[in-house]
């Protein structure tokens, strides 16, 4: 199954070339060049992974990560940055980011992480469904 990926970066040339390369690897890519656009895309949903630039004008990557996790905690976010600092990395992981990749990224490595994100999301969604089912069964008292 094609991984559904939301790619978020304010560098339009980067978005364009990455989208083309990821699509050529069988991924279903949606591009967003701002945090606001990314959040609107998240609402329409269904992404297996979100690849998010850490430094963006207006709402930065950390703030966007918080907003994404608030909307849907099962969404898997991989942060992408031009200059990774240990502090930012730790902060992002604490906020629930799945991984942290430094630019220029290795596309094979990123693809691997996206596949991991898809698997992780599926486990989380299944677990959620199971819990929901369990709660319905117990509440009905059958």
């Amino acid at each position: 199954m094609a991984e559904k990926v939301l790619l978020v970066d304010d560098e339009k040339d980067f978005l364009s070339v990455m989208s083309e390369r990821m699509a050529a690897r069988g991924m279903d890519v949606t591009a967003a060049d701002s945090a606001e656009e990314a959040l609107a895309q998240v609402e329409s949903g269904g992404f297996d992974a979100i690849v998010l630039d850490l430094m963006m004008p207006g709402m930065d990557g950390i703030e966007t990560l918080k907003a994404i996790k608030q909307r849907n905690p099962t969404l898997q976010v991989i942060l992408l940055t031009g200059h990774a600092t240990l502090e930012k990395g730790i902060e992002a992981m604490k906020l629930g980011a799945m991984d942290f990749v430094e630019k220029p990224a290795d596309l094979d490595q990123l693809t691997q992480k996206i596949k991991q994100a898809q698997a992780k999301k599926m486990v989380l969604v299944e677990k959620r469904m199971e819990e929901k089912l369990k709660s319905i069964i117990t509440s009905k008292g059958w």
Partner: peptide
């Protein structure tokens, strides 16, 4: 400046990768 340079390099690298594709 180094952050900006990394952004430019990332775009150059991905375009080189696209040529390879």
């Amino acid at each position: 400046v180094s952050h900006e340079l990394k952004n430019a390099l990332a775009i150059i690298k991905e375009n080189a990768g696209l040529l390879n594709d």
